[in-house]
Structures are given as structure tokens and as C-alpha cells.
């Protein structure tokens, strides 16, 4: 019994290593059209958290530029980016993941910031302090947050 439990624990630990290894921003592989086929975490995205990332000013703040019926309960939708109603029909999960991580690979010169990128910036700052960044940058969203947003956007069907 005890041995079984130990084996089980070991198996879970191993599973975490195998499946839940996060792909670092610099290791992301962009395919054709800027898509990312592989999950960044191996953990299925949580659409409920994904929606929170979209509407929360301190997280993704996607609502600043994008409007959708899907977050009609949040006021003041921006209009800089395209409407995201039905976006799950127009783009695959891999394409959505790529656009979130670095949309410039899909749309050259787009205004959209790259949410999973940590280098190649001009005068990167320490968040919104106006001061220089200290040490390595964190991506704007974590790998799991990207997966969560992908999961939510994938539910937006016409």
C-alpha cells in the first residue's frame, strides 16, 4: 500500500516534469504564419481565467484595444484592434497562441504588443515606472495565462 502510494507520487512528479515543463519565451518555436503548435505549458488552458486576463487592466488588458460581446459586462471596449467576436472560428488555437506571443510574426508591423517576449526592445522599462528595467524582463503574460486566453478565445464562435 505504502509502496503503491510512493510509486504514484513518483509518477505524478515525473508527469509534472514531462508534461508541465514551460517553454521559455526565447525557446518558443513559431511556425508558418507565426503560429505556435505546441502548448507553452502542457496544461490545458482555463477559459474562465483567460477571460479575466482579457478584461483585467492589471493583467492582459486586451479590452483596452479589443471589443467583443463576450466581455460586454466590462465597460469601455477599445477599437484599436479588430473585434474578437467569432475569433475562435477564424483562427486555430496554434494561430491564436502565436498572435498572443508575438503578433508581429503574423501581422508585420502591427501595433499589438508581444505578450510572450522578453528581449529585443528599445529602452525597456521597469513596468510603468518610467525607470530602466532591472535585470531580465518578465513576459507581459505568463505561459499559462497565454494558454488560458487561447482557451477562452477558442470558445468564441459565430
Amino acid at each position: 500500500m505504502r509502496l503503491t502510494a510512493l510509486t504514484f507520487t513518483a509518477a505524478v512528479a515525473l508527469a509534472n516534469v514531462t508534461f508541465a515543463e514551460t517553454v521559455a519565451p526565447s525557446d518558443v518555436s513559431f511556425g508558418e504564419g507565426g503560429a505556435i503548435e505546441q502548448s507553452l505549458t502542457g496544461v490545458a488552458g482555463d477559459p474562465v481565467n483567460g477571460k479575466d486576463v482579457i478584461v483585467n487592466k492589471g493583467r492582459g488588458n486586451c479590452v483596452a484595444c479589443h471589443s467583443s460581446e463576450a466581455w460586454a459586462d466590462t465597460p469601455f471596449h477599445g477599437e484599436v484592434g479588430p473585434l474578437l467576436d467569432g475569433v475562435g472560428d477564424r483562427w486555430s488555437a496554434a494561430e491564436l497562441r502565436g498572435i498572443l506571443a508575438n503578433a508581429k510574426n503574423t501581422f508585420e508591423g502591427t501595433i499589438m504588443p508581444a505578450y510572450y517576449k522578453v528581449d529585443g526592445f528599445t529602452r525597456p522599462g521597469n513596468a510603468y515606472t518610467g525607470k530602466a528595467a532591472e535585470g531580465a524582463l518578465d513576459p507581459l503574460l505568463s505561459a499559462q495565462e497565454i494558454e488560458d486566453v487561447v482557451a477562452f478565445l477558442s470558445t468564441l464562435k459565430e
Binding site: 469601455f76 477599445g78 484599436v80 501595433i111 504588443p113 528599445t122 525597456p124 522599462g125 507581459l140
Partner: peptide, 28 residues
């Protein structure tokens, strides 16, 4: 026209390419 910072935005991105659009509750 230089894109600065982690959001990678130039003055032109907002004020030349997107004036008249709303960014959240702000009218660019």
C-alpha cells in the same frame, strides 16, 4: 517613429495610425 518599451509603441502607432479610435475610455 521609434517603437519604445516592452509594449513596443511609437508616438505614431497611437497618434498617427490610430487617432480617432478609443483605447479603453480614452479617445486617441
Amino acid at each position: 517613429y521609434t517603437r519604445f518599451g516592452q509594449l513596443d509603441l511609437s508616438c505614431a502607432n497611437c497618434h498617427e495610425d490610430n487617432y480617432g479610435n478609443m483605447i479603453r475610455a480614452d479617445h486617441l
